[in-house]
Amino acid sequence: MPKPFTSPVEDSVPKVDEKIAVGENLEFQRKWWRFERVIWSVFLVILVCDVLGLFGRGWLSKAKLVSDDGELTLNYERMERSDTPSIMTLHFSEQAIHDGRVKIFVGRTILGPLGAQRISPQPVVSAIGEGGITYTFAATEAPAVVQIALKPSFPGPHKFTMRMEDGRPVEGSVFVFP
């Protein structure tokens, strides 16, 4: 024989004026309104940061690196977005050109995580080794400019290296947003 119920059956939904079971929770709702005010402020801050370029493609994301000897100046975006194209520009000074050629070593980070798609103009020689590629370009006189089209596919921080022939490495970092 089944045991009889011993606990009373009660309405678990809070009642209004002890009359109608609505389930209103005004205290929770007041907290939620406060949360809404905060979250809309956060959304506004996010949009302002986006306009300023904190998430890439804007004023704050633009970066410039110059090698110690001044042979190489690098313009790039320190904040990138995943699967979004960008351009890294390499400016070579007169001292960088030797015998009508410019030689530069590009580290593997630019080729891999930062997703180098193409390099313009095409190098005369591309030599693999030392964990990257050494490009040799034909050059006459400064200003000489090379562009690398990037399309990062791995979100997160990435450090990269570039080095002129016999020069000291230029190191930078890029953060890729998902």
Partner: peptide, 24 residues
């Protein structure tokens, strides 16, 4: 459930507007 769906709110009680709820 309350966070995702919210809770029911009384807008009019005994013929009177609840201004806090209407405004909120």
């Amino acid at each position: 459930g309350a966070i995702i769906d919210g809770t029911p709110l009384v807008v009019i009680r005994n013929g009177e507007w609840q201004p806090e709820v209407v405004r909120g």
